[in-house]
Every structure is written in structure tokens, then in C-alpha cells.
Design a protein around this nucleic acid. Structure first.
Lengths: 296, 296
DNA sequence: CGTTCTTACGCCTTGCGTAATTATC
DNA sequence: GATAATTACGCAAGGCGTAAGAACG
């Protein structure tokens, strides 16, 4: 029994006429005739009364029609579901923190699109903390995060780049003449920080707390452009990775002596199947950054 | 997409190993490898992660497995249902009145079995009236009945034999010396008749009623042997078709002057599909009795 | 005589098996 | 080197189309 035979059978039933069914199916009429014969032989029953004018279903044929219709519907369902799956499997939902959206994502997107033109990278902007949650619950296929050391076993990852944390101040600010700063010095200065679900803000606040310092945060925002303006105006100062704001006339960049460089990683759920598109992205990241950490 | 491909895929999933699946399916391992490749190409997804030790399903593969399992179950259902239908289609449920069970049925059964050794004829004993009901509601595929003239359009039929009605009396009865009898004469005699759902009894009672006669029926029975005994004992007399009781020392047979010969027919439901086995029986009856009445 | 299904036959595709190749541990 | 999947290739079966045949009105 083959699906084509059943499809042929069903179409013939719709017309009660092999010739017309053949036209509809774009096959020759003897092919259909043969398909029916094969079904009849396989099941040991006769499906049609052969009349001079067309055919009529037998009692047994009616049963086969009923079952064949069900089976073909199920087959159609399978095909359309697979079509959905194909499309879905070509979309990677990638969580990207605002700061890394400009540092890492553009390059990744570019090389991904050139390697896999059919696939789509869907970027969702979130802080590192939110990203982790969304990777865990499956909302995201993968995420770019910042990370210092420990990462739960629920995540697999590959390392991307290391970034130093810099302290950015207005060019008009007296601090602009220094090349570096201690964390302790920054506690009393007016700060603009990334939103509270960002790794950097979380990291800094933990540092302050650990050293019993209370920072003077005047605003949290995810908008890098906003941060830049506040710094340029000398309204506030900020911590950001290197290369986020270009040092120049209006902005000075100071190294932070007490802080190590921060590792950025591409993470994905260790306990879930990952789509081929996601897998491609991972592979590409490993190749681009030459730092494999877990096997595929 | 073919059912065999899906079956192969499903088996491979059970083992996560093409080689073992090939052993189970009794096909070569490249055949399975190829089937998977074809499915992957058709759906534009990859189904397995190829690892050194066997395979593991991808996310997309899991969806296909789910759908394939459903489809294959449906296909199995179709096949088993068709097997039931094949067996059923080889059984004809045939209603036969007691009297005709010995006159017509043995010959019909013999020629049917020799023409169609695989088919089965299942005889159900009923009077003509019950037979008609059971053909109408589909309990019977066909029935042998007696009939005078009119038959509703809900039945198709083919004529079998004509039978004359005879009046049987004991050899010791004074009537035994006559060769014929009038219906009127029989009204006051003690009668044993076939059960009330038999055509003959119904027919006789209508005759008596139409002529304002009240017959002296002492018992109704479907047992021809019982009737014979009652007649031989001279306890009662009876009406039966010719050749039911052989005239001889103990039994005399008298023609009934007022009654015409009765037509027996094979009938089937005009509004229902009939199985091929039933159709074969009909065809055979037409050939044996050379009296076609309606087209196939 | 036309309509329609069936049979016959040739071609080409496809499925399958054997054997060689690749890959991974 | 052992295990297991993939690739290459040749054969045989199956599907399909064309053309001829048969049944029925």
C-alpha cells in the first residue's frame, strides 16, 4: 500500500471516472487503473463495480475510501507541520544585551547571514540576567551574555571576547586628566548605569555592597545614546565596556584599577534540543572566536 | 514521502542506530541511510545529529517522529480494518424459510461452494415475512422468499422456482382417495400450518378471510418433521409445496384447485451496497434458474 | 461508433544490495 | 583498528506513458 495509490483511489472516487481523475492528477489513465488493481489485489477485495459509464464504489470500497481519506489527511497534516518546522528551524531567537548589541552582534550577524542566507537571526534586547532566564525557559534559542567565572551547568556556552570595564567621564570633568580610577573613588560621583538586569550594573552593585559603599546612581537606562549625552553634559559618569563610547574631546576614558576584564559568552540551554540554525550560529561563533568550550 | 521511509525512520529512532535498525527491518544499512537522506531533503531539515556512536534525533526529527508514528498507526488501522472487511465480504447471510431450506437451499449451497470455495454461506432460518424485514434493515444480505406477484421496490430480486401448493392428508383419511380439493372444503378440517411469519400460512389465512371462512388450525410449527408426523397420524392435515412430503402409503397429496403456483425468489436490498460474495450468489442464482429480472 | 476501462509493452526512475570510503573513538 | 555512517555503482523491480484491445450502451 502506498500513499500515491490511496490518493489516486480517492480522486477516482471523487469523479467515479478514471479518465477524468487521470486528467485531474496529470497522470495517464492506465496508471490509475493499475493503482486500483494493485489495491484490490493487496486487500483481496474489489473496490468498484465496473459499469459501462464510469465506476461505483462497492461496500468494501466505501470502507477503504473512509480510511484512505483519514490517512491522507493525516499525511497532509504531517507535511504542513514539517513545513512549519522547517521555517521555524531557520529562525534563531538570540538575546543580546544593549551594550553588546553594538560590540559583538553586528559582526556575528554579518558572518551568519553570509554563511546561511536562508536562516534568520531574530535579536531580542535584554540584559544578561533576563537573557539567562529566557534561555532557561526556552523563549530564546541562545543569548550573548557577560559573565565573570561561574556559569550554571544548565547552560552550554562558547567564549566570545574579553572586555575591560572603563569609567567614562565628560571631557570637562577634572577627572578627565587621569588615566585610571579606583572603584572607591567612583562611589560618591553621580552615576548613570545600564538597567538593573544588565550584568555590568549587577556586577558593580555587588562590588559596592561587598566594600560597604553606597553609589550615587542618578538614573538607570538601557539607551547607550542617553548615557553618552549625560556623560558629555557632565551630568553623570558611567561604567561601560571598552569601545562603547569613543574617547575624544567630550568624553574621557579611565581604566578601573580594581576590576578584571569581563568575559562575554554565547550561551544556550544544555537541557534542550537546539535547532540546526542555532547550532550553525554556535559553530560559527566557535570558529570566529576560536574558543571551543563544550562539544556539540 | 513514502510510508516505508517513515517506517524506516521510526525504526532507526527506536535504536538510534542505523545498523541495528537495518537488521531488524531486514534491509541493508545503506538503504536506511538513504531513506533518511531523502526525508531530510524533502523536508529541508536535518533529522539526526550524526555522532560517532549512533545517532540522536534533532528537535525537528522529534517532530517528524511524532507525526510519523501517528501516520503509521493510522496506516496499520487501515490495513487491519481492510482485513476485517475482506473476511466479512466473504460471508453471505442468507435468510431461508424452513420449507425452502430443503427444496432450494441445498442445491444453491452446493453450486455456490464449488464456484467460490473461500466464501461462506450463512443460513438463517426465518419465515418469508421476517426475511423481508431483515433484508430491509441489513441484518441479512439476501433471502429466499415465496411471493405472489407484488414485491416492493425496496427489494431487487431474481426468480427461482415455481411451486404448486398441495394439501397433504393421512393415507388413512377418506380424502386420501381424492386427487384434488377445494379451499372451501379445507376450512373445517383440523390443520397444522407453518409458523405465522411464513408466506404460505399468511397467504392461506388471507384467502380464508377473503372468503369469510374460519379455518380450524390446531397448531403452527416451523418443523417440517412435526408436520409430517401429525399428518401421518391423521391428527391434522396441511398445506405445503410440492415435494416437501413424499406421497406414499401414509401420506396422500391432493392438488388445491383454487390456488395458483407460487413463485420463489432470491431478494436483496435495493438501497444498500451488496458485498461481492452476495453478488456472486445472485449471479449464480440467475445462471442456475435462467430468469434475470433486474440488472446487477 | 463512441466512451471508458483494461491489457501489453517499452522506458526510465527508484529502491535495494555489495563494496569501497570516510569519520570518529 | 573497530565501529558505524556515507558514497559509489550495478541490478532488478516498479511506475508511468503510449498504443492496442475489450466491454458496454
Amino acid at each position: 500500500m502506498k500513499l500515491t495509490q490511496l490518493q489516486y483511489f480517492k480522486t477516482i472516487c471523487e469523479y467515479n471516472n478514471i479518465t477524468r481523475a487521470a486528467g485531474k492528477l496529470h497522470v495517464s489513465q492506465p496508471s490509475l487503473s493499475n493503482a486500483i488493481k494493485e489495491l484490490e489485489e493487496e486487500f483481496g477485495i474489489s473496490l468498484f463495480y465496473r459499469l459501462s459509464k464510469g465506476l461505483t464504489l462497492t461496500k468494501e470500497g466505501e470502507v477503504l475510501l473512509e480510511e484512505a481519506t483519514r490517512l491522507l489527511e493525516q499525511a497532509d497534516l504531517l507535511v504542513s507541520r514539517m513545513n512549519v518546522i522547517r521555517r521555524e528551524s531557520q529562525i534563531v531567537k538570540l538575546g543580546v544585551p544593549p551594550m553588546l548589541a553594538s560590540l559583538i552582534f553586528p559582526k556575528l550577524l554579518h558572518s551568519y547571514r553570509s554563511s546561511f542566507p536562508n536562516a534568520r537571526l531574530q535579536m531580542i534586547e535584554n540584559g544578561t540576567l533576563t537573557n539567562k532566564t529566557m534561555v532557561t525557559d526556552g523563549t530564546l534559542d541562545a543569548a550573548i551574555i557577560s559573565c565573570d567565572g561561574f556559569l550554571p551547568a544548565a547552560f552550554h556556552y562558547t567564549d566570545l571576547l574579553l572586555f575591560r570595564i572603563y569609567f567614562y567621564v565628560s571631557g570637562q570633568n577634572p577627572l578627565a586628566s587621569q588615566t585610571s580610577v579606583d572603584m572607591e573613588e567612583t562611589a560618591n560621583l553621580p552615576l548613570v548605569l545600564l538597567a538593573e538586569d544588565s550584568f555590568l550594573t549587577d556586577y558593580l552593585m555587588q562590588y559596592y555592597k561587598a566594600h560597604s559603599l553606597t553609589p550615587n546612581v542618578i538614573i538607570y537606562t538601557n539607551q547607550i545614546a542617553t548615557i553618552r549625552q549625560l556623560v558629555e553634559n557632565n551630568t553623570a559618569m558611567t561604567f561601560l565596556f571598552e569601545n562603547i563610547l569613543e574617547p575624544g574631546e567630550n568624553i574621557a576614558r579611565l581604566a578601573v584599577r580594581n576590576l578584571p576584564a569581563i568575559q562575554t559568552k554565547l550561551i544556550w540551554n544544555a537541557n534542550k534540543k537546539i535547532s540546526s540554525a542555532t547550532q550553525n550560529l554556535i559553530r560559527l561563533s566557535k570558529i570566529n572566536y576560536q574558543q571551543s568550550s563544550v562539544p556539540d
